[in-house]
Write a protein that binds this DNA or RNA. Structure first.
Length: 664
RNA sequence: GCUGGCGUAGCUCAACGGUAGAGCAACGGUUUUGUAAACCGUAGGUUGUGGGUUCGAUUCCCGUCGCCAGCUCCA
């Protein structure tokens, strides 16, 4: 034991014959220790249960990446003297380092130079060395280098914690560690992009330049990662949306998709399918207005809590002498001056007639609930609404179909008694599972998003109760969830359903939210069996969430090759020669008679070209008709690159009809 | 919104101070074709938009609109 006291982690492992060529660190419980770290306090560091950590262990990846970030910062300061360093953590996809460079911007050419310098440093096989310093020593060293950001970081380190520097070659950085033993372990390195980022993620603080990169212990692992990125690029729904003629955009309607005929067929197919499930699960669909008096949003709380995301609609009498007034801004404290100025210029603003474009369906569903005197016998009342919503999203967050300003959701609100909540949550779980399975989304993770730290409505007791009910509903189904503290909606906690797509990326789709607030704000009541009034509970729920956003996920999940039941064209009929066209047309007509969606290619092209043309649309099937097929009254069927052989027209109708049914 | 980058034919891209080009798509013709691109021809543009610099601007500068990346990961 006495011997252990002055030994390094590496020496301990070596003595036990556990130090391998690819050992980058040691695990002491969950702590990761540098190999060269001295075990001066063996008891607290847990020297007795050290296990080696191999470079290809996933737990070693953050070390590899963070060490690479150091090498990058070293290279940047060599090439661009005077550039100050800030932070450079390992992240899920690699690492980044934020720099304050005063003399210019990093260009793509700079990235190539930095990467080349990094390779030189890595090739020198420089060991990483940890040294601890006193706060005063650290401050002196950083001040001497003019590293003002590091000084700020130093001041944020709690008193009593060790202050350490990590050095490789001549370059050192204030750093907690741990690191790989030497630069030799950094073999798969690539710088990917440069972007702006605020110091400490705060928009009021200086904008720094962030260089992103990724790193793996081997070139092979890096190559695999780059291939994955390429695959993601190939599946990008914005690219496929254009190539497959699914949707488009126009600058006169920013972030508002136009669904082209092929895309609209998929969109409507999804909605039709969801309607059949709604019928089975006891939902009633309603259709509600787009624009409401401001009073509705004041009542619901959206005017106070959600106005920044709302579009405001005004009648033409609110248009001033200087044109359309940006009314939305005029109702903020900062806008008061503009408002006064506009009024002085003769703008006639009818503040009492301002209307809000709906951003959510819940308030209008509350109005519907209150259209009748409700009995407990009416509950649960499940109101579904595919109504179009508009939300003003900040320009920087817009992205293809996944972040838009107009969309519709597979939205529904369930009004029920407190006693009915368990059954409603359970039924929703079943519906959601059914839909996800139908769409081939098998991997689902649950998260419970709790009360936001500010800006939320309702009492602590209501929130605690709602959160507990959601948590219990998960346990009742034998599932588990992860907590997302503070991520709830302003009116209630959310259960979020995250799915993993075909290439392993997670997406949040469905939600289930308990809301005790809206029923209170709208004074909703039902008459119980005791003949007394009671307040209903309101559940907000969506299976796929925004259909636009879901389509972005689904297009990438399927790479644009939709299943028969959703495909815009289920089979493309191509003929060998013109003389086969009448047969193909007749077959197409027969398929349409069975509610199928065929497409006949009557272009003047050779068969090979037509097959290629059809394949680019990624239909489930391509059917070839030539002399042999006409003779035998059928088609030669092809799925992707696979030849399925001859099918009679009867067999084709039967096969397609079976596959066109909604999955169960 | 902020920082940086990018807007050229329907699509993918050239030209980067000196008359704006290609491939695919479109259109016309020839060909009647057997499983991922037949051949010939025609047409298509105030280079996102407004202004400025210049003898001359797609190219340089400024504004504006749109698109793309990032702005959450903490020595």
């Amino acid at each position: 034991m006495v011997n252990v006291m002055k030994q390094s982690v590496g020496e301990v492992l070596k003595a036990r014959n556990q130090l391998h060529p690819n050992t980058v660190a040691a695990l002491a419980g969950t702590r990761v220790l540098d190999l060269h770290r001295t075990l001066d306090t063996a008891d607290t560091l847990g020297a007795t249960d050290l296990t080696p950590l191999a470079s290809d262990d996933p737990r070693a990846l953050p070390l590899v990446r963070h060490s690479t970030a150091h090498v990058m910062a070293d290279a940047v300061q060599r090439l661009f003297p005077g550039t100050r360093v800030t932070i450079g953590p390992a992240i899920d996809s690699g690492f980044y380092y934020d720099f304050d460079r005063r003399d210019g911007r990093f260009t793509d050419e700079d990235l190539a130079r930095i990467e080349a310098t990094m390779r030189e440093i890595i090739a020198q096989d420089l060991p990483f060395q940890r040294t601890e310093r006193t706060r005063a020593e650290a401050r002196e060293a950083l001040a001497a280098q003019g590293e003002t950001y590091k000084l700020e970081i130093l001041d944020a380190i709690p008193v009593g914690e060790a202050i350490s520097f990590y050095q490789h070659g001549p370059w050192a950085d204030l750093c907690e560690g741990p690191h790989v033993p030497s630069t030799r372990f950094l073999q798969g390195v690539k710088l990917t992009s440069v972007a702006g980022a605020y110091w400490r993620g705060d928009e009021r603080r200086p904008m720094l330049q962030r260089i992103y990169g990724t790193a793996f212990p081997t070139q092979k692992a890096l190559d695999a990662h780059l291939k994955q990125l390429e695959e993601a690029r190939a599946r990008d729904h914005r690219k496929l949306g254009k190539e497959l003629k699914l949707f488009t955009f126009h600058e006169w309607a920013p972030a508002s998709p136009f669904f082209l005929p092929r895309g609209a067929r998929v969109y409507n197919g999804l909605v039709s399918y969801l309607r059949t499930r709604y019928a089975r699960y006891g939902y009633d669909e309603v259709i509600t207005p787009q624009i409401f008096d401001q009073a509705l949003w004041e009542r619901s709380g959206h005017w106070e809590h959600y106005r920044a995301n709302m579009f405001v609609a005004v009648g033409t009498d609110a248009v001033g002498a200087k044109g359309v007034v940006p009314v939305n801004q005029l109702f903020t404290a900062e806008g008061a001056e503009d408002r006064a100025a506009l009024e002085a210029h003769g703008a006639h603003l009818h503040f009492d007639q301002v209307s809000g474009c709906k951003a959510m369906n819940c308030p209008s569903h509350c109005l519907l609930f209150a259209t009748e005197k409700r009995s407990y016998r009416d509950l649960p009342l499940r109101l579904a609404d595919f109504g179009r919503l508009h939300r003003y999203e900040r320009s920087g967050v817009l992205h293809g179909l996944s972040r838009v300003r107009t969309f519709s959701q597979d939205d529904a609100h369930i009004f029920c008694t407190p006693e009915q909540m368990d059954a409603e949550l359970s039924s929703f779980f079943d519906l959601r599972d059914e839909v996800y399975r139908a769409l081939g989304l098998d991997k689902v993770e649950l998260r419970l998003a709790t009360r936001p730290t500010e800006g939320s409505l309702g009492t602590d007791e209501d929130w605690a109760r709602a959160e507990a009910i959601l948590a219990e509903s998960v346990r009742a189904k034998g599932k588990t969830f992860v907590l997302s503290p503070g991520e709830g909606a302003f009116y209630g906690p959310k259960l979020e359903f995250h799915v993993t797509d075909a290439i392993g990326r997670p997406w949040q789709l469905g939600t289930m939210q308990v809301d005790f607030n809206l029923p209170n704000r709208f004074g909703l009541e039902y008459v119980g069996s005791d003949n007394a009034p009671h307040r209903p509970v309101m559940l907000h729920r969506a299976v796929l969430g925004s259909l636009e956003r879901f389509l972005s996920v689904y297009i990438e999940h399927t790479a644009g090759a939709f299943p028969v039941w959703l495909a815009p064209e289920q089979v493309v009929l191509v003929t060998v020669a013109d003389r086969h066209l009448p047969f193909a047309q007749e077959l197409a007509q027969r398929l349409r008679g069975h509610d199928l969606r065929p497409l006949v290619d009557d272009s003047n092209e050779k068969l090979g070209a037509k097959v290629r043309q059809a394949s680019l649309l990624k239909p489930p099937y391509i059917a070839v008709v030539g002399d042999k097929e006409v003779e035998a009254v059928g088609v030669n069927l092809r799925k992707g690159r696979q030849d399925l052989g001859f099918f009679t027209t009867d067999a084709l109708v039967e096969k397609l009809t079976a596959e066109a049914r909604y999955p169960t």
